[in-house]
Write a protein that binds this DNA or RNA. Structure first.
Lengths: 254, 254
DNA sequence: CGGTTGCTTGAATATATTCAAAGTTAGTGG
DNA sequence: CCACTAACTTTGAATATATTCAAGCAACCG
């Protein structure tokens, strides 16, 4: 179903992290000179993963951590019979591969939804990061805690919500996160995936996901077509989702 | 429903962390002398939370982190109408309150199932820990990553599993964790909570939870009565759960 | 165009929920 | 020791929600 294809590797050691277009955004915390220098040396490559490829695969060993510079993807786990659960969507600024910091065996996969650009950091230098840059180490922990919080909210929505509530929650969640990454505004954003992805993220069948989305459209709350989401009733969406996860800024970026 | 009761506070600065009965267990990593000294100074109190109390409440501010020394509890989030999702169960060795490391506002609650004993660490000295003890800082990150992995597995079970699979998953998960904390063996363990807790943890109704548990008993796979779980068919339980989360040792303990 | 992928819809079915009530157990106080 | 209560477990029946099955439609692509 999801073929694992090796990612294109681009030698790009000439990283000018201080001029990183992502880091320059106001949403991210400013690093000190010493920290920027460390990050630049920490980064060993910049790779591109094409849409549909699997840069990180469950069960495999990875010696690297990645920061998403651009593009969309998703983290997921599969069952032997093919069912899969999308754990969350991946956007610029996210740190990947931390989950298994000691052992390097991955316990989930990551698939690219669009072409993704990733900064590559060798895992074996994470120790030096913790030893020499406690501020960056706290950033790593902050990112892990943020991830955990998102999973908590996810679990609440999936465990307790009806289909209507789950879909509202997911759309709002994605909109707020995209906002934080400069990818949304004016109630509009790109959704570079299919209804099947929404179904797999929320534990719903494709058919029921479709019917629930149609209902949101007929209620004139949110319309999704041709890969673009338009939210007309943000307040009503929040009321249905019972949760408005506005992101905190400034947030760390490795 | 869940009244918030202040916990009994016990002045216990005479902590002999090096002789901590929990830390002495083989499952936990040995700390260096310097690390032990730091942890002992880091610990400002030892408190007891009675069964049914809520030592950490969603929305409140906490200036402390806690390590569970003994007892059981659970982490949960609630919706305005009373529905609640149990995010996971809390056992000895778990670190609590990290989730919101920078802001001190809690995004979930913790309720004690039995009397719990907790080590108390002031959050504002976390920075000193990261600065002076990178090994302990990595431990904190390791614990966060482990938590994240457990949430991932949870999400997979709840999002994709049938009731039968979810219950099998939870029982197995609890058994493996209890094993790691020295609280289970020979296929037997204490379950100090009710079927309602299982229902709230798995996103199932109480009635359906009960019927599914009865089915597992009638299949002679696992029996739960009078607060005690007896697993007769561990292999069959693993086969249903499609996942056997054997804990890794040694693991860190703060 | 023909083929593929994704969206949409209706109908039949399955799974899980809600409702209702009885049975059990543990704790309390007379 | 027993009556009484409260919390928890168990069961059956009716209902709701979501799934599966099946098929048509639309858009895109070689």
């Amino acid at each position: 179903m999801n073929r694992i294809v090796p990612s294109d590797r681009v030698a790009a050691r000439n990283a000018r992290c201080e001029a990183c277009p992502l880091r320059c955004m106001p949403a991210f915390r400013k690093l000190s000179h010493a920290e920027i220098d460390f990050v630049r040396a920490f980064k060993v490559a910049e790779i591109t993963a094409g849409a549909g490829t699997t840069p990180l695969a469950e069960g495999s060993e990875t010696d690297y951590l990645y920061t998403v510079l651009s593009g969309w993807g998703f983290r997921y786990k599969s069952l032997p019979d093919g069912r899969r659960q999308i754990l969350n969507f991946v956007m610029p600024g996210d740190l990947l591969g931390l989950q298994s910091s000691l052992t390097s065996e991955m316990h989930h996969s990551v698939e690219a939804l669009t072409k993704m650009t990733l900064c590559v950091f060798p895992r074996d230098r994470l120790w030096a990061l913790f030893r020499d840059h406690p501020g960056l180490a706290l950033d790593v922990t902050w990112l892990a805690a943020r991830q955990e919080r998102m999973l908590d909210e996810n679990l609440l929505a999936i465990g307790q919500g009806s289909a209507h509530e789950r879909i509202a929650y997911l759309l709002l969640h994605l909109y707020r996160r995209a906002e934080g990454a400069g990818l949304a505004g004016e109630g509009e954003m790109e959704l570079p995936f299919t209804q099947q992805h929404v179904a797999d993220a929320l534990g719903l069948s494709l058919v029921h996901t479709n019917k629930t989305l149609r209902r949101l459209a007929s209620e004139n709350i949110a319309r999704w077509s041709s890969g673009r989401l338009r939210i007309n009733g943000l307040e009503r969406l929040v009321a249905i989702a019972k949760n408005d996860p506005v992101p905190v800024a400034p947030r760390p970026l490795l």
